[in-house]
């Protein structure tokens, strides 16, 4: 596949992930469209998060994980031998399910990434921190207490702090692993608005359990379902991509019966 005028930020090509000898997700082929929001939906344990973590090589941190297939980023395979996973994670940022600010001040949380990259100049750091917090719609709430611990913020604020922290290293893609599952509806709404805002400049991939959320925020949706196989002494469960399309299409006219059942809340 070629990079169609930068239309695709990431292309997955026959991607499978195994933990030890057990498959977690198999044979996924799909694109991630640049500067749009792509949502992964599917039942629990179908490997959505695993697939998300393939895109910035976070699975490398699990010793038993093995990835096959190609993940193309600017036409380059992220799992190629010459690729440094640290470099990948600088260009593909991540926001996690539970807000996980560092036990440091708000300022130091946001400045962490730039400092890793060697930014020492105080004025430059101040500028990056302010800009990232503004982008994450947190600036007005914390501008006078940047020295306060990140852990002292509310859950929704913490998650926006984590988004600001990810933005501070200027990634091209931001992966979000159920970013609102630990938040109340008002905080969720704020994060969703923020995602719509950010999608003008960033490519966003989000995993969600919440069908309405996928409909509200995403431009493209991929439905992943669970496959099972009885083996002697154990049961293998892995995920497979069932359907991928524009969110409007997929929710209005699902092509597969399984997708329709899942969207309607009927589980087989």
């Amino acid at each position: 596949m070629t990079n169609l005028n930068g239309r695709y930020a990431i292309q997955l090509h026959d991607v499978s992930v195994f933990y030890g000898h057990k498959p977690a997700i198999q044979h996924v082929t799909m694109p991630v469209v640049s500067r749009k929001i792509t949502a992964y939906i599917g039942p629990s344990g179908c490997g959505k998060s695993t697939l998300l973590r393939v895109m910035n090589r976070m699975n490398d941190l699990v010793p038993s994980a093995r990835v096959s297939g190609e993940v193309l980023f600017h036409g380059q395979n992220l799992y190629g031998p010459e690729i440094d996973p640290v470099e990948v994670r600088r260009r593909v940022g991540m926001v996690f399910q539970k807000p996980n600010p560092f036990p440091k001040s708000i300022y130091d949380n946001v400045a962490y990434g730039p400092r890793l990259l060697g930014v020492r100049d105080r004025a430059a750091l101040d500028q990056i921190v302010a800009q990232s917090l503004k982008q994450a719609a947190l600036w007005d709430e914390v501008r006078h207490e940047l020295k306060k611990s990140g852990l002292a913020l509310s859950g929704g604020q913490q998650q926006r702090l984590c988004i600001a922290r990810a933005l501070a290293v200027e990634p091209e893609v931001i992966l979000m692993d159920e970013p609102c599952s630990a938040l109340d509806p008002i905080s969720t709404q704020k994060i969703e608005e923020l995602m719509r805002d950010l999608s003008r400049h960033y490519t966003i991939v989000i995993v969600t359990h919440n069908m309405q959320q996928a409909q509200r925020v995403s431009d493209y949706t991929a439905f992943i379902s669970v496959r099972k196989e009885e083996r002697p002494n154990e049961e293998y469960r892995w995920g497979e991509l069932v359907e991928y399309g524009s969110t409007m299409e997929l929710f209005a006219h699902p092509q597969q019966e399984e997708t329709a059942d899942h969207i309607a809340g009927r589980f087989g």
Partner: peptide, 22 residues
């Protein structure tokens, strides 16, 4: 907590940077 390490790695920290700073 593992989440702190994940956050650090996710921002492009190397293993040593994560150990040293977090």
């Amino acid at each position: 907590p593992w989440s702190i390490r994940e956050a650090s790695y996710g921002l492009g920290a190397t293993r040593w940077q994560t150990v040293r700073r977090q």
